[in-house]
Design a protein around this nucleic acid. Structure first.
Lengths: 121, 121
DNA sequence: CCGGTCATACGACGTTCGTCGTACCATGGA
DNA sequence: TCCATGGTACGACGAACGTCGTATGACCGG
């Protein structure tokens, strides 16, 4: 709840605490899937404000938190910005091939549905 | 033909209507994940009553319905029983490798958590 | 025909989810 | 110092979810 600590630190689940169900659930939301695809596509850390999502800032914060608590992304403060990076190594170690196949599937579906975004040419 | 039409037909989404988000959501429930793992492990069609799930019959029906409507399983009546089979071909065609990696991940997690009902092929 | 078995439908209930708005805090620069 | 920028916390709300119990329907074997 109310942390009076420096609190500029964010809690991340350790690999042993990451649950497949949680990851799948995190990935089952369209907005979050867009975030993950973009993160994977660029391969670098991106700030929350980098993303242009069809939701408000509050909701964006919420989605990033869900991703972080599921163990999908790692968030670190960098000045006023909060950078987000995919936890690829941990995820691949825990669930080999899962992230890649989800990403591939998302690309395939986007192409199938004629969605243009999230594809860094 | 000697093919007998099932008295009650069940609606299944066509491959083109299967959504990745829907599949991931269907797979993100522990009970449904158990069902899918068992279906994949045996490789044959299983009746609803075959499964020993920690929920009532009503809830079991509900979960099978979610899986069917997401396009994960195919259900066909066979007498009073309803047989359930994984839609492997369709899923693999739509999202190559996805099902396998989820299944592998589920096995890995089950082993990691000390699962009792793991199903080594 | 009649009962038994397998599964469904429907309604209910509490929980979680996705969304928003508003108020607030933390950092960095003018 | 003060303010602009980037993000958070909290509360609210409707919708969807997972669960159950009971009543009902479909099929098979006597």
């Amino acid at each position: 709840m109310t942390e009076r600590e420096p609190s500029r630190a964010l809690a991340h689940p350790e690999p042993a605490d990451i649950r497949l169900e949680g990851v799948l659930h995190a990935l089952s939301d369209p907005v979050r899937l867009v975030i993950v695809r973009e993160l994977a596509g660029t391969g670098v850390e991106l700030s929350c404000s980098y993303f242009e999502l069809p939701v408000t800032k509050s909701t964006t914060t919420h989605h990033f938190r869900v991703l972080r608590e599921a163990g999908v992304v790692r968030q670190t403060y960098r000045g006023t910005a909060k950078m987000n990076g995919l936890r690829r190594a941990e995820l691949d170690g825990l669930f080999p091939g899962l992230l890649d196949s989800v990403l591939t599937a998302a690309d395939a579906e986007a192409a199938r549905l004629g969605a243009p975004s999230a594809r860094p040419a």
